[in-house]
Design a protein around this nucleic acid. Structure first.
Lengths: 254, 254
DNA sequence: GAGACTCACATTGCATGCATTTCCGCGATG
DNA sequence: CATCGCGGAAATGCATGCAATGTGAGTCTC
């Protein structure tokens, strides 16, 4: 039985497919937290053999979605509110480091070009008096680019790796929970505040103000903290959100 | 052919042995940087089959010692001075976060006990007018414990994972290069300075001075930065040190 | 003599086989 | 009625087989 569906080629394609498939299954809540991920079941569900499944599980363990079980295999992790808050704090701290390094390197106007353009584009999105859902999508896209560019400006592969790993933690990414604002009345205001921070961050970096850039980036991540708390205060908002079932507001599983 | 030597049992023993063996081979310089790690060769050298070898390589890739090659397999990574400095800076930043969190939690006197004892033990080691090599070993042991305990006091598994990953980067650990001081005249002074920082860090945490603790932890990691620079200024010191052959002071491999 | 092509070989990535261990349900027993 | 022990079945971890692909040497050509 060899790849009956979608014989796309690629070097590590089976592993990638298993990883993506597992991620979706877990975030969709089909694999309940605390339960072991059965490899044979995944083989049947994902159409790849056990070897890629195992490798994908290993990578997801690094990503934090699963954890090695005490007696073999992997179990789906659950996340407490504190876990999410800490993950965001870690990302903010590392982005602060990246921002400081970027500022201290005194980037040239040319090097800052992409970030300037990104901020300008974000300005245009946020400036609108009313934001459609598509606008929020566009914001998410540009916001992601801003954070990538910020890390790139730090000029360090090591720092980039660290930030990427931190942002890959579930719900810790720079755009986590942004979608929730799309249905909120005051959703636009949050984006206005965040965008102001983007502008000031760009300013601090372009002026070589390292400490200010670091503090701004850390504070910027705390917008995500507030989004998280708002989401947690309203369980309805979590239901249906990818990964919502992984949250354990009060600890202790069966 | 099943494990002719040392049939120690264990759940992931083959993978662990492969990982440890590969680490040693790489740090010993037997696998030159930039070269692909041949799986069959490792099978022969390590006495385990290809599956554990592959898994170990995947984990070492996360650890940073190897990187996935462009066309399959893994290649031994080389490190520039900037890489090492950045890795140390990342660790210092995250330890700063851990120290701040620890301080902000206002740990009880009881919770601070192990850290106090550790600092006291370090005091006794450093207070001696002359330090033997065994004293340096003891310092390394206690220093590692101090850093573990610091992270534990932050009370966050997420932060702990982040710090551990940062400290696992080659040469980024809290005790990297300490051994070099054992043969230096002024070696003891560096330990005196570092130990003063340990004391002040403990003080800041016990008083709940979060920002001070954060700054102290970050600055404390910069002791490692200076050790690194001292080591790099003297190639002789690197030769023979585990992993010394991985350093590429000027970039570009064959 | 230098460079590009070709072809055989070694290696990788995936699939699968096998022994050991663990889990789960069932029955026995206090 | 609850708890303990036990047996079968499934799952894991490791080893290995197989096809596809990259590598490298040797050779041919300009």
């Amino acid at each position: 039985m060899k790849a009956m569906v979608a014989e796309e080629e690629g070097r590590g394609m089976q592993v990638a497919r298993a990883q993506q498939g597992l991620r979706e299954l877990i975030l969709a809540g089909e694999l309940p937290p605390g339960k072991r991920v059965s490899e044979p079941a995944m083989v049947e569900r994902l159409g790849v053999s056990r070897t890629p499944v195992r490798l994908a599980l290993e990578r997801l363990a690094q990503e934090g979605l699963v954890a090695p079980g005490a007696s073999g295999g992997f179990i789906v992790r659950a996340f407490t509110a504190a876990d999410l808050a800490d993950a965001i704090e870690v990302r903010g701290t590392l982005e602060g480091l990246a921002a400081r390094l970027a500022a201290e390197r005194r980037p040239t106007a040319g090097a800052l070009g992409p970030l300037r353009d990104c901020v300008a584009a974000l300005d245009r999105v946020v400036a609108q008096p009313v934001l459609s859902e598509a606008d929020f999508d566009e914001y998410v896209r540009l916001n992601a680019f801003f954070h990538e560019e910020l890390v790139r400006l730090a000029g360090s592969g090591v720092v980039a790796r660290a930030v990427e790993q931190a942002a890959a933690q579930p719900f810790a990414g720079p755009s986590a929970f942004v979608q929730l604002h799309a249905t909120e009345a005051a959703g636009r205001d949050t984006l206005v505040v965040a965008q102001e921070q983007h502008r000031r961050l760009l300013e601090a970096i372009s002026r070589g103000e390292g400490a200010r850039a670091e503090a701004l980036a850390a504070e910027h991540a705390r917008v995500a903290q507030r989004r998280l708390r708002a989401a947690l205060s309203d369980r309805d908002k979590l239901t249906g959100l990818p990964g919502g079932s992984l949250l354990r507001l009060a600890a202790a599983w069966p």
